[in-house]
């Protein structure tokens, strides 16, 4: 275990529950602002003890409402909850409308909930890294459970895969037949399936279809994903959903999966950071380094192919800088 050095002031403020310091540091993380570096470094040894739960699924299945219901349930159990809700940025303007807060209901003055909306900002590794570091900041700030909500598609979905230790895939009745579920690619990441809007007709057959799919070989490492029906209208099933999540968390502890999963995610994190840094550096050198600019010119002129150019760029980077 890392020895605990004295915390820098901003990190101390976060650990003491200063929500403004927490919010600002999350922004620094999102912006790639180096002022976040010493804070993240200082808090790291204190983190990793609380469950990070991801909820993902197609648009409109009720993820935000479920998150709000789970927050209510957890507050009833006396647990403090940090939420990160990720939505895509527009590929055209870079802007976004982040609307997941609309569903959030909390008692006036309740400081046991912290909700942060996050835009994907268009970089594949970026959103996963920002989500992971934000989860760590929430952990250090004393929240007992971290919930991460993302749309289940493409790059945004990576945030869940690379951050959460229990992944809940949320579906609804009439999304399509079971082949759609196979296609979506969501199936493989589910530790828990949630059939939401179970007050609607067709919920029973959606559950049966899923159960059949799971019986064909869902889950990993001896865990078979449970299927929980929920409704945030009636409301019902929220307690069962949380029980299913907790049972997966207990399974992670008893099977040794927590450590191996964490090891894999941390490896991805380290390699991902290096990849992003090196890629950015090489892209810049390709533009500015007189010895390398020629490479791109020749590829443009079709006197050199992209693979050979990449090999030479890599070789140049290995020779040092």
């Amino acid at each position: 275990m890392t020895r605990r050095a004295p915390l820098p002031p901003a990190a101390r403020a976060i650990v003491k529950g200063d929500l403004r310091a927490l919010a600002r540091t999350i922004s620094a993380v999102e912006n790639g602002d180096p002022s976040a570096d010493p804070i993240l470094r200082a808090i790291y040894p204190r983190t990793g003890k609380v469950p990070v739960i991801g909820l993902t699924g197609p648009l409109g299945v009720g993820k935000s409402s479920l998150v709000s219901a789970l927050v209510g349930h957890l507050r009833g159990l006396g647990r403090a909850v940090g939420v990160v809700a990720v939505d895509p940025s527009s590929p055209f303007s870079g802007g976004s409308v982040l609307g997941d807060r609309i569903r959030l209901e909390r008692a006036p003055g309740d400081t046991g909930v912290f909700f942060r909306s996050m835009a994907s900002r268009g970089s594949v590794g970026g959103v996963a890294a920002a989500t992971r570091e934000t989860a760590r900041l929430l952990d250090a700030a004393g929240f007992d459970v971290i919930l991460i909500e993302t749309v289940g598609s493409g790059q945004v979905d990576l945030a869940i895969r690379e951050v959460a230790s229990t992944r809940v895939v949320v579906l609804v009745p009439h999304l399509g037949d079971e082949v759609q579920t196979l296609k979506a690619g969501l199936f493989e990441i589910a530790d828990v399936f949630c059939v939401n809007k179970s007050d609607l007709p067709g919920a029973g057959s959606a559950e049966r279809d899923l159960a059949e799919l799971v019986s064909l070989g869902g889950g990993r490492d001896g865990w078979s994903p449970p299927i929980v029906a929920t409704s945030t209208v009636t409301p019902s099933g929220i307690d069962r959903l949380w029980a299913a999540i907790e049972s997966h968390q207990r399974f992670l502890d008893s099977s040794g999966g927590r450590l191996s999963g964490e090891r894999l995610r941390l490896k991805q994190e380290i390699v991902g950071r290096v990849r992003d840094e090196v890629a950015a550096e090489l892209a810049e050198r390709l533009d500015k380094d007189p010895g390398l600019r020629d490479l791109l010119d020749r590829v443009v002129a079709r006197t050199l192919d992209p693979r050979s150019a990449a090999d030479r760029l890599l070789a140049a980077s290995r020779r040092g800088r």
Partner: peptide, 9 residues
């Protein structure tokens, strides 16, 4: 949003 801002609604 179209002007590139992140809008929390």
């Amino acid at each position: 949003r179209d002007a590139g801002m992140e809008v929390i609604y």
